[in-house]
Amino acid sequence: MNHPQIWMLLAAGLFGLGLYSLLIARHLLRQLIAIKIMGSAVFLILVVSAGLLDGRLDGIAQALVLTGIVIAVAAVAFALALVVALAEQTGAVSLEPEDDDDDR
């Protein structure tokens, strides 16, 4: 990691893409992917902003991100269970009403 600025810009770009998609996407799976990608951006920021120590990444930031990755997959599994339950009971995969698009 010779150029932390590049990785920060990448993280900002991923965050922005995820945010944009989260706001416009209506399919819950797509929104979930958007949240996951925003999460990856946060992990990148966490690790890169901790800086280098003797040319190695900071162990504390790495440990936090490692924890975060495992929690993220558990959260995704829970969210997917909710999405599937919603679809089975209402037949919809979006949290918004179908007809009125422009009221918000």
């Binding site: 799976l29 037949g91 995969v93 179908e98």
Partner: peptide, 20 residues
């Protein structure tokens, strides 16, 4: 996980939302 959820949604014929 996401692939299998996609498959389940397809099986229950969930309505795909329209474009924003």
């Amino acid at each position: 996980l996401i692939l299998v959820a996609y498959w389940r949604l397809k099986r229950v014929n969930a309505v795909e939302p329209a474009d924003p």
